[in-house]
Nucleic acid binder design. Structure first.
Lengths: 116, 116
DNA sequence: TACCTGTATGCATATATTCGAATATATGGA
DNA sequence: TCCATATATTCGAATATATGCATACAGGTA
C-alpha cells in the first residue's frame, strides 16, 4: 500500500510547498533554493531530503552541487494529481513571485554570495 | 490562495485517512466511525472536525446524530484529485477491510453497544 | 596528500500534534 | 423543566516536528 501519510506529511509544511513551487519553475541545487527562499542551508537541505524521501522530487549530482527536480517519472503515477494541484495554484501567489525573483538572481556559489 | 498546508496536514494522519476511506463507502455518524475504527469518541470527533475544517468532508445533523460525508461539492474543485487518489488505493487495503467489516455491524446507539 | 566548497547530519531546543479522561454542549422526549 | 444521550471541547502528558548551530562528509583542484 502506498504511504499516503508520509506523502501528505511531506506536503504539509509551507517551506516545502514553496520549494516544490520553485522546482516547478526549474531544477535547483540546494544553494539556489536557500537563496530563493532566503532560508538556511541546513533547512533547505533537510526539507529537500524530506521531499525526496516522500518520492516527490529526485536528485542528481553535478560536480559539487546536488541538483533537485520534480520527479517526472513518479508524476505519471500517484503524485501526478498532487503536482497538478500545485500547478493550478501558481497564479496570484505573492510568495512565489518573491521566491522566483530571488531565484533569478541566485548564483551557484553560496559562501561569497550569502555572507550570512 | 488555497490553504494547501491545512489541507495536507489534515491528510497526514493515518486515523484521518482511514476515516476518509470509510466515508467513501458511505456517510457515517461519529459513533459509527468510532465503532468502525475502534477508536475513542473524542478521537473520532476531533479528527472528523479536522477533516471538516480542511474542507474535505461536511456534516449535517440528524436528530441526536451528526452525520459526516465526503463533500461532493468541494470534490469538484481542488480536492477532487485527492479523493481520486484515495479511491485508487482502496484495493488491497487490509485495514479498510477490517474497518468496513466493523462498520457493517455498527449501530447508531453507542453507550449500550460500546460499554467501553 | 592537503585544501576548499557544497551538502548532509547530529544535537539541543522551541513548537506543534495527538490522545485519553473529564467535562461541556445540544437535541429530543417525558 | 428535567433527564438521557450523541457530540464537542478542554486539559495535561507524551510524542513528533522544525530549526539553527556546529560538524562531518564528499567531490573538485592543486
Amino acid at each position: 500500500m502506498r504511504d499516503f501519510v508520509k506523502l501528505f506529511k511531506a506536503l504539509s509544511d509551507e517551506t516545502r510547498i514553496r520549494i516544490l513551487k520553485v522546482l516547478l519553475e526549474r531544477e535547483c541545487c540546494v544553494c539556489e533554493v536557500m537563496q530563493a527562499l532566503t532560508i538556511s542551508q541546513s533547512r533547505a537541505s533537510r526539507n529537500l531530503g524530506i521531499l525526496e524521501d516522500a518520492g516527490l522530487i529526485k536528485s542528481k549530482r553535478d560536480g559539487l552541487w546536488i541538483v533537485y527536480s520534480i520527479d517526472e517519472q513518479r508524476m505519471k503515477s500517484y503524485t501526478a494529481p498532487l503536482i497538478e494541484l500545485l500547478r493550478s495554484s501558481l497564479v496570484n501567489d505573492e510568495m512565489l513571485l518573491q521566491d522566483r525573483e530571488r531565484l533569478s538572481h541566485a548564483v551557484r556559489i553560496c559562501s561569497k554570495a550569502m555572507p550570512k
